[in-house]
Amino acid sequence: MTLADQHCLPCGRNGQALTSSELSQALVELPSWDCIAGNAPKLECTYHFENFSEALAFTNAVGVLAEQYQHHPTLAVAWGQVRVQWWTHNIQNIHHADVVMAAKTQRIYNRLAPHAVR
């Protein structure tokens, strides 16, 4: 089963971050995504679109997904692009739910912008 087909389960304060090996394995399935360091590690991807309207439609679709799973990313919308970051606030790290949501986000992008330059 691919990551995008998995169900996102909530992570409590005692949830476990992915190990570096688990994260590396997940990133094989998420080649457009990077792990960025900072106060808390995050998964990040910037998606490109033909215009602002397409970027906003993608943002809204990701918002619907986030509400469905009660797991919310940081979304930065600009003309022709959207930067998405997933991480789990409770543990200030990357949890399995984040890689699942990143894969679901990628699936939305592939559906909405199948001809976009990646």
Results as ranks from 00 to 15, higher is better:
M101I: 12
L65R: 05
T19V: 05
Y109V: 12
E50Q: 12
D34C: 12
R107G: 00
T74R: 08
H96Y: 13
T105E: 11
F52P: 13
V99T: 14
V77E: 07
V84C: 03
Y109I: 12
A37C: 05
L9N: 10
I94R: 02
Q106M: 09
N110Y: 01
A57G: 06
L30Q: 11
V28R: 08
S32K: 01
S20V: 08
A40T: 13
A66M: 09
N39S: 10
T46P: 03
E50A: 15
S20R: 06
F49N: 04
E29P: 02
V62R: 01
A4Y: 00
F49S: 06
C11E: 10
W33H: 10
H89V: 13
C35W: 00
Y69F: 14
Q6P: 00
T74I: 08
L75A: 05
E54V: 06
G12N: 13
A17Q: 11
V82W: 01
H7Y: 01
I91P: 07
N90V: 08
I108H: 04
T2C: 05
R111C: 06
V77P: 07
Q6D: 01
H96E: 15
T2V: 03
Q68I: 03
L9T: 13
T105C: 14
C45L: 05
Q16M: 04
S32I: 05
P10K: 05
A113Y: 03
D34N: 14
T74D: 15
S21P: 04
C8P: 01
L9M: 08
Y69L: 14
A78R: 02
Y69K: 13
W87Q: 13
H72L: 09
T105P: 07
K42Y: 05
V100A: 02
V28H: 11
L27V: 06
P31V: 08
G12R: 08
A26L: 01
L65C: 11
L23R: 04
W86N: 11
V77A: 09
I36T: 15
A78L: 10
R83C: 14
W87Y: 14
R13L: 09
S21Y: 04
V28E: 15
S53P: 02
H96Q: 15
Y69D: 14
L75C: 08
Y109E: 10
N60T: 09
W79E: 14
A116K: 02
E22S: 13
S32P: 01
A26D: 11
P31S: 12
N110W: 02
H72R: 10
A4S: 08
C8D: 05
G12P: 12
V82I: 06
I91A: 07
T59S: 15
N39D: 14
V100E: 01
W79C: 13
E22P: 06
F49P: 07
E67C: 07
I36D: 03
H89P: 06
Q25D: 15
L23M: 04
R111A: 14
Q92K: 12
A37N: 08
